[in-house]
Structure formats: structure tokens, C-alpha cells
Design a protein around this nucleic acid. Structure first.
Lengths: 253, 253
DNA sequence: TCGAACCCTGCCCCAGGGGCAAGGTCAAGC
DNA sequence: GCTTGACCTTGCCCCTGGGGCAGGGTTCGA
């Protein structure tokens, strides 16, 4: 009897759904979805069936919204809101790490978009452009991508047919996760000292990967010594560590 | 397999859909979706109906993927790929601006996630946060601070502009030692019985304090009756003693 | 007393795929 | 030759996080 007016009067349930939504910067529809998904408890209704919200709902909604904007799926948010504070804190840490990762991805994507803009297309063939683009995509540093590009420019001017055959091999290789991992490790090794103890293992992995390819792909074109020397010299000159890897790989035939 | 390299280099068609997808770091399903949406031309089929792709498809797919990762909708990508280079360049500029905006949003979201750990800051304005902080500083009980907080949340959702004007008054008032003393007495009176003999004196002091303010500061915003009632009712419902004070203050106009 | 601005439920729609079914095909090893 | 497993084909329904609209009822201010 007095029940309803008490609830209204004690300040717990005064907001309509529209006011609540405006406060949290959310649409009415979203609020109803959060009810459906069990994220936000259904508030009491007034005499005409309208939902009436209080400050606790507003707080909860802002929380939900913050997590949603951080990219947390609704199902996970529900789970988190029900969990204890230490679990919640741990989850927040992980969410923040994810956000950081996403920021990093955006940074890389922006670089790639920029390259898409003023393509390297002027200097190398479309195939090579695609290959370079792919390297950026998998996270290879811009420095190494530019080294690759310069190398291909040289190759294409010295021996266009060889270059065409090689780029085909590269396109096939880059589809192999093992090769991608190897490439990224090379990228990382650029700055290492030639004495770095990690280099022999990298050389061994390289040797094994090429062995695994034997007879299938790269064996085809007869290796023109001028060309291979060119490639080797170009790479070795840029990074002492890479030069050392080449040495190591040769030592164990 | 040498054969394969030459064909690829020639732009002939020999990649299967799985190889193409692996190359671009995409699922087979996604490739088929891009066909359906008209982003990627359907390649020829081999004798058993399998799709066979060439280098051009691989390049196009990497391009598509780059744009998708930048958050461009598929429909827009289709449009862009068909457009001229100047239109394409303009679109890339806009896409990059979007990415920048998204990075900025992520930065802000990270801050809010950090605050989610502890702090009322997310739920009320910075001014209100400061006010609540000041209340705690002068020794107001946490219970009353939380009541205030809830009230401000409601106020900010119902009438943000009024709330902004009011909080300015409150910040001014809290600088007055007389008001601070009054507030602390209210805080202490929370638990008193409505019959407590000390209440009339408190009511009288309240009346006098408000009389002293008249015309000086608070005159600015015309007091919206709905809002003042809201505030009064909300407070009264929490503490019978406070409700009694409000009655007493009214009796002597 | 009327129109504007709210609110209610229920239903279908979107992107960008994922997953599964129910087949056809191909290469390797025995 | 036969099997096995990895690949390919089409077609269909499913998911998230809501948006939009229909077809009502309610409330408030002029």
C-alpha cells in the first residue's frame, strides 16, 4: 500500500530508463539488453509498469559501460561482476594488457595503411609489394621491410627473371608459420652482437627449415652465384649478427 | 614444384583456397565471404571444381585484409577498391584519422579501467568527487558520504545543469566553518530518535544559516521544485531524525 | 484536451564471420 | 587396389551487440 510510495520516497528508485541511459551515455536499448543478459538487475516498476532506477543501478551501469568499451564481451562482464574483488582486480589487469596490445596493433596498422598509400609499387613489382605488405602485417619491423625492399629492387634490376621466381618461393614460404616465426626472430636478431649465444640455435633452425624445403621448392632455379652473393652481402652488411648466422650455417653442412 | 613457382610468377592460377588463406593469414571462410561480397574476384576452377588463385589474388587479399584490420566495413572496401587513386588516397587519409581517434579512445578507456579499481570518480563529476573528498577530510562518516554520493548521482542524471550549479554552492558552503560544524552535527544526528530534544536547536541553526546565505550566493539558479523535493525526500527517507528537522524548519517560516 | 515526449513488449535486421553437415577429391602408404 | 586423412565444395543456422520499427500505453505542460 504505502510500499510503492516508500520506495519512490527513499531515493532508491527515481530514475526512468531514459534518464539512466543519458547519465551513463548509453541508449535505452542497450540498458534493456543488459537486463536481458543479466548484467544489470531489473529495477522495480512504478504503477504504470515503467522501470524505476536508483543510484546503485547508475553505478553498475557505468561500470558495465566502461568494461564494454574496453572490449570485454557481455558474458564475461557478467561473470566478473559476480566474482570477488581479487578476481575482479586480476581481470582488470588482463583487460588492460589487452588494451595495450590493441593500441600496438593500431600503431602497426597505421604504418601499413600509410604504406598502402604511397606504395613501394613504383620501385618493385606488384608481387613484391604484396610480399612486403605481408611482412608488415605479421609484425616485421619497418627497418627490415625497407631492407628487403631495397634488396628486391637490386634483384629486379640485376636479374628480373630470377627475382620473379624467387618472389614466388617467398610468397609460398611466408604462408608457413614456421618460416614466419623464423623471420621474426631474424628481425629481432638484427641488433644482437655477433657473439650472442642465441645465434647458433637460430642458424641451426634456419638450416633445418631449408633442409625441410629441399627438393620441393627452392631447389628449382639454378642458383646464380652472382645473385646469391649479392643477397648475402647486402644482408650481412646491414647486420653483423646476420652475417654471423650465415657463417654458422655454412660451417655445418 | 618448380613448376608451381613459375606459374605463380607468371600470374597463373595454382594456389588452392587454403594456401591462399594461409598466405594472407586469413580463414578459408573469410576468403569465401570476400567472394560473396564482391571484394575479391572469383578465380577460375580446376577440373574438379576447386578454386585456383594467382599472385594477383594474393595481393588483393592482403590489401583487403589491411583495410579490414583498420576497421573499414567490407562494403566500403569494395567501393574503395573500385574507385580511382585520388579517391582511394583521400579515403586512406580518413581511415588513418579514424585509427588515430581509436588509439586516443583506447588511451582514455585504459585510464577509466584503472579508476574502476577504486574511486567514485567514474560515477560523479570531478567537482563532486572533490566535494566528497572534502567531506571525508573534515570527518564526516563514510555512511553519510555515501548517501551524499548517491544523491549526487541521482541529481546528475535527472538534471545535470542544476547539479553543476548546486555543487558550486556546496563547494562554497563547505569553506564556511559554520556550515562545516552544522554538517558534522547533522552527521551525528543521523541515528537520533525523531523525538530527540536536541533537534529543534539544530533546525533553528539550519534556518539561520540558510537565512544568512540569502541573496548573497545561492540566488543564482531558480530552485526547481521537483529537484529540491527529490533532495529533501531522499535525505528524509534515510534518517527519521533528518526528516523531523526538515519538518521543524518548515514550521517556523 | 491535445500533442509531444516518454515508456512498454515483441519482432526482425545488420556485419563478419564460425561451425557443422553432407558430400567430392587427392596423395600417401600398405 | 584400398584405405586414411587432409583438402575442397555448397548450404544452412548460429553468435555478438545492439538498431529500428510496430503497435500499443502514459504523463506532462500549454
Amino acid at each position: 500500500m504505502r510500499f510503492m510510495s516508500d520506495e519512490l520516497a527513499d531515493g532508491r528508485h527515481l530514475l526512468t530508463i531514459g534518464q539512466l541511459a543519458d547519465y551513463a551515455g548509453v541508449t535505452i536499448k542497450a540498458v534493456r539488453v543488459y537486463h536481458d543478459r543479466g548484467l544489470l538487475p531489473e529495477p522495480p516498476r512504478d504503477s504504470s509498469g515503467y522501470r524505476r532506477y536508483g543510484a546503485k543501478h547508475a553505478i553498475q551501469l557505468v561500470k558495465i559501460r566502461t568494461l564494454v568499451e574496453a572490449g570485454v564481451p557481455l558474458a564475461r562482464i557478467k561473470e566478473l561482476l559476480g566474482a570477488g574483488p581479487e578476481r575482479f582486480a586480476a581481470a582488470l589487469d588482463e583487460i588492460d594488457r589487452n588494451l595495450q596490445k590493441r593500441a600496438e596493433e593500431i600503431r602497426r596498422t597505421r604504418q601499413r595503411i600509410a604504406q598502402l598509400h604511397s606504395g613501394d609499387r613504383l620501385f618493385v613489382s606488384a608481387e613484391v609489394t604484396g610480399y612486403l605488405e605481408r611482412l608488415r602485417q605479421i609484425g616485421v619491423s619497418e627497418r627490415t621491410v625497407l631492407l628487403e625492399r631495397d634488396l628486391w629492387i637490386l634483384l629486379q634490376s640485376v636479374a628480373p627473371e630470377q627475382a620473379a621466381a624467387w618472389i614466388a618461393d617467398k610468397l609460398a614460404a611466408i604462408a608457413d608459420p614456421e618460416f614466419r616465426a623464423l623471420y621474426l626472430d631474424y628481425d629481432a636478431a638484427f641488433d644482437w652482437s655477433p657473439d650472442d649465444p642465441r645465434l647458433p640455435a637460430l642458424a641451426e633452425r634456419t638450416r633445418r627449415w631449408y633442409a625441410g624445403q629441399d627438393g620441393s621448392g627452392a631447389a628449382g632455379p639454378p642458383p646464380d652465384p652472382t645473385i646469391t652473393r649479392l643477397a648475402g652481402v647486402a644482408a650481412g652488411a646491414s647486420s653483423p649478427a646476420w652475417a654471423r648466422i650465415a657463417e654458422l650455417a655454412k660451417e655445418v653442412p
